[in-house]
Design a protein around this nucleic acid. Structure first.
Lengths: 258, 258
DNA sequence: GGCCCATAAACATCAGATCTTTTGTCCGAG
DNA sequence: CTCGGACAAAAGATCTGATGTTTATGGGCC
């Protein structure tokens, strides 16, 4: 269902030299990853000109088909600008599409002071708050049932963190869907899926933290069941904030920079 | 600047037969537009299987290079799923990246009840409100100067609507940038650029409406200059809401469905 | 009936050639 | 010396045809 692959894709420039023990799905994704990293890490500054396509072919050992596909995808993500007759140049950070999975993942990886992660959580908190308010007036009995069963399932998963996270995200997903705001749902889903998959958000949590999450969800549920959208919004906002604060504290003591 | 072409793109399958009086920038964009329209209009339902690449080549009259590039871009946008050995299928609406320019434009075009546009404005209002609050504590003197000059320039452009819109958007852009929230800025910028370019948001406004906009901006500016972030946020939120309400009213009387 | 392999379908990649656009240079006219 | 236009070089865009890989399917074989 999901796609938890490619978190560490980086098969080190495989060519056609026979030793391709594993193929990364698409060759172009290797090139995308590589070039995106150069750009996002700041190694290649804004305005820098990339080598020409034939040169890149030689460097990576892939054909032009693959290289071109990668360049097009990077252009689509706002990292590059490809112009006939002129060459390929690096776009300014303002043009990057930070909601794109690859861009987001790499940007977070090089986000030393966690300002980007902070931004992400802020956006998520704001949007989810308002979407909870909107959902309050639209939830069906079936939705409420779903939410309740989801909370129960999460409560029974304290010993299986991945499973717990699944139900955690599912809870928010039900709410987003019920809010009727497709745009908000798209954004929040992108943040959940690709932003939450990084430390410190992806690190296993203490049992107490999980219990707090369940309690918070139950509080949101009760507010929704009572039809009090504002209260539900306040509670989910508070929930996201406090969960993030707890996570930041964890990270601070960990020093996980690799 | 924009690209008002290709609303009805289908230049009768130009080949290399000499008569290519005009090239649409990239051939792939024609294919992207065409296929995206089929999907977003609902003409092709979720799960539908597209013709194979060779067939598409024949239909469009382009080579596989072009067709493949288009398919890859559509996959990137969440509209399609391309799988080796199986074929190309249409993705469910939930997977669409509604913030992508092309997807957003077409989705709005087929957004008969304006619910999507409503979603867009809601997200924008929520985000901009919070970002104004954040900006209040970070604005430099230079930023404030910029804002003031921007308002004055807008006020002097009542008779040149495109120019007025430029300054209008610039005002918001300065604020977004000053907020320090890159993610929020990316999202709001996407909404401004690609969502605001459609009727009824793109239609020329009355002089009174423009004056109200300027007054609203000035109110936001004064709150910011006074360091009152909450007030600035409330004002900008109110501004976006009332401007949208006015626009909806215009649209209602117009019946612009073509 | 269930398992295994041959085959076909469909996308992935490669290789090389030709076309277009952009840009910079060079040279002659004024 | 400066301005233009012709010309050439660079770089991406597109075309063509062949070959590799993955997936699904169908027919034997046990």
């Amino acid at each position: 269902m999901m796609n938890p692959v490619e978190a560490t894709t980086r098969p080190a420039r495989i060519g056609r030299d026979g030793t391709r023990s594993q193929r990364p799905g698409r060759l172009a994704s290797v090139v995308v990853e590589d070039l995106a990293r150069e750009i996002i890490s700041g190694n290649w500054a804004e305005g820098a000109v990339l080598p020409t396509e034939p040169v890149l072919c030689e460097e990576f050992g892939f054909s032009r088909t693959v290289i071109r596909e990668a360049l097009k995808l990077l252009e689509e993500r706002g990292l590059l600008r490809v112009e006939q007759g002129r060459g390929t140049t690096v776009q300014p950070r303002e043009a990057w599409n930070l909601l794109d999975p690859v861009v987001l993942r790499l940007a977070l990886e090089y986000d030393q002071d966690m300002s980007l992660l902070d931004n992400l959580v802020t956006v998520r908190r704001i949007l989810e708050r308002e979407m909870a308010v909107a959902a309050a007036g639209r939830l069906t009995e079936a939705d409420l049932d779903d939410l309740r069963k989801n909370i129960d399932a999460a409560e029974a998963s304290y010993d299986d963190y991945p499973r717990f996270r699944f139900y955690d995200q599912k809870f928010h997903a039900i709410l987003m869907k019920a809010s009727g705001n497709e745009v908000g749902r798209t954004i929040v889903a992108a943040i959940h899926t690709h932003g939450g998959a990084r430390p410190p958000l992806s690190a296993a949590a203490s049992r107490a933290e999980l219990a707090r999450t369940v309690a918070a969800h139950r509080g949101v549920y009760e507010a929704l069941a009572a039809g009090d959208g504002e209260l539900a919004g306040d509670r989910i906002s508070e929930h996201i904030d406090s969960a993030w604060a707890a996570r930041k504290k964890v990270r601070r003591g960990a020093r996980t920079r690799r």
